[in-house]
Design a protein around this nucleic acid. Sequence first.
DNA 1: TATAGTAGTATCCTTTTGTATAGTTAACAA
DNA 2: TTGTTAACTATACAAAAGGATACTACTATA
Lengths: 134, 134
Amino acid sequence: MYREAIIEEQSAEIVVAEGGHDKNSPTCTNYLRSIHDTLDIISGKWKVTIIGSLSFGKKRFMELQRDVEGIGAKMLSKELRELEINGLVTRTVYNTKPVTVEYEITEYGKTLQPIIFEMSKWGTQHRKRIMSKD
Amino acid sequence: MYREAIIEEQSAEIVVAEGGHDKNSPTCTNYLRSIHDTLDIISGKWKVTIIGSLSFGKKRFMELQRDVEGIGAKMLSKELRELEINGLVTRTVYNTKPVTVEYEITEYGKTLQPIIFEMSKWGTQHRKRIMSKD
DNA sequence: TATAGTAGTATCCTTTTGTATAGTTAACAA
DNA sequence: TTGTTAACTATACAAAAGGATACTACTATA
């Protein structure tokens, strides 16, 4: 009842306003549990950026490594493997010489885009804020 | 020009559609850089959950530890210190006996709520999906 | 006196993350 | 012939993150 409304129609601001007087309601517990579930899948230094990059189209291993600044081959292949296991990206090998491999975001992976888009928006604003301080 | 439009008015879905043919445009680079900036501040296993919890009202150390399932005192105090340094939460000590300390989200911290709200929404859906598979 | 609660710190240890370097297979370019 | 690209894996190692346990100082309660 309470929770349904929040999830379907309300904004984060409203959650806070409504929840403020009821600190340990099941709403709060559910909210935090859901966050935890999401973090289990996308936490770490790289996954979000990888998915963000693949949101602009399928890419090959080397393209991704160039896109995701600072990642090494070992980490990239490990992270891609985990994303594949969770059904967020697909991996396709073409038998060209030398082999090429393409990574592509799945429909399910695309459901993460609102999160990533919000992160990008926040990062843009944050950079402006930091810059104007110096 | 291109970028302004995306940031101010477009959704994540549209970014993808528009960006799909232009994989390494500055738009993509800026998008990924912003994500990276955000991750610098909220990455790790706990910070998002802590802010999520504080979105329901100010809390004391022990309340937070009970809320954020699985976190130890050491991690909690470390993460809170970092959040404080970045201006996302405030720490207030009351000279009661024994001392009580209250943590509260700042206005700036609240600007992270859209990200966290999206994470919670996704986690809720993801749990449903996983559950229905077994 | 013993126990519990408050908000932590100190110490040690394990796990995860990351880095650097070398090697693989096959083809093409100089 | 040597070098280069592709997409990795293997190995070794270093650093960061996180966990477990003990401990502090103080008060209130049993």
